[in-house]
Simulated scan of single mutants.
Amino acid sequence: MKLGRAKCYALSMSLLVAGFVIIICKPPFPAVVASFFLLGLGMAVCLALNNVYCANLANSTAALGGLHGSYGVGGVVGPLVATAMASHGVRWSLFYCINLALSLFNLAFAVWSFANYEKELPAQLLGALQQTASRQANGGESRSRSRLLKQVVKDKTTLLGALFIFAYQGAEVSISGWVVSFLISYRHGDPSHVGYVSAGFWAGITLGRFFLSHPAHFIGEKLSVILLVIGSIAFQLMTWLIPNIIGDAVAVAIVGLLLGPVYPCATAVFSKLLPRSMQTSSVLHPICVGLYGVMLVAWASLPRVAKRSE
């Protein structure tokens, strides 16, 4: 609220630019770790801004489908380009030149797009923002932030949304990251071919977000997510139980197709349940809140470690 939308986008893109520059220079490993911290921070801020903006458009579900469909495009194209570059002896770090170029473009384009964003806000919302700024100027900034944080942490929608997104992200990353290992270890697939199954999964994610998010809006987001998750369970079981690589590859792609609209639908529902003042905080932190909560529960549930007698 203090920086404004354009400067926040500039900050997030600048963090990405800095992270990619560090990686391209092929520094020592500790510097690579630091660069990925910058990348994670920049992506988190950018994702929160994008979600809040798209969630408040007229057809929010379709807009969010397009937003996260582009994420799926990167999931499909990125591994293919990286594999092609590596197979031709190109240094691995140079792959990130592509990411750097995209980040520089987004930096300039986002600042230009949102330069007058606050001036074009509806009068009611603009008045609320001005009141907030006035309270901050009068010394109420820390109290306002503390109150908002408490409100977000106690909010039922935020907590349930955190748990939902945590589970969704875990399933998505697990399938895309481990299905190749599963096919090699248990289906005895050729490593040079089964790697494309992961690309098929991301292709399904992309198509689902582009083409199923809009119909899901008309069916109803809550009902659509239930049906999509049930379908994903069915095809995941097929992947597990059918001892055929081609069948597994098709089933995994369909799982991606069905999972694709789930995230846009969920974000659209969260935005309708949350007031505007809480949206950025609630969208930015759900995964972290969910992760920490599940970590604590899982850790506390572990059996006690028996003391060694020797």
Score class of each variant (00 low, 15 high):
M1Y: 09
G4M: 08
A6L: 12
Y9Q: 04
Y9S: 02
M13G: 04
A18D: 01
V21T: 12
I23D: 13
A31H: 11
L38P: 03
V45T: 02
C46H: 08
L47E: 03
A48N: 03
N50M: 09
C54I: 01
C54K: 00
N56A: 04
N56T: 05
S60A: 06
Y71A: 02
V76M: 07
V76L: 08
S87Y: 14
S87D: 15
H88F: 15
V90L: 07
F95Y: 11
N106P: 00
L107K: 11
A108Y: 05
F109W: 10
W112R: 10
A115V: 07
Y117W: 09
Q124A: 12
L126I: 03
Q130W: 01
S142Y: 03
S142V: 00
R147D: 01
R147T: 10
A167C: 13
G170E: 08
A171S: 15
E172K: 02
I175H: 03
G177L: 05
G177Q: 09
W178D: 14
I184E: 00
P191R: 05
V197R: 00
S198G: 10
I205H: 05
I205M: 10
L207W: 07
H214I: 03
I219N: 06
E221R: 13
S224E: 04
I226V: 15
L228V: 11
I230W: 14
G231A: 14
G231S: 14
L237K: 15
W240I: 15
P243Y: 15
P243W: 14
I245S: 09
A249R: 12
A251L: 14
V252K: 05
I254N: 15
I254H: 15
G256R: 01
G256A: 01
C265E: 06
L273P: 13
M278N: 12
S281D: 12
H285P: 05
V289E: 11
G290N: 07
V294F: 04
V297M: 11
V297W: 09
R308Q: 03
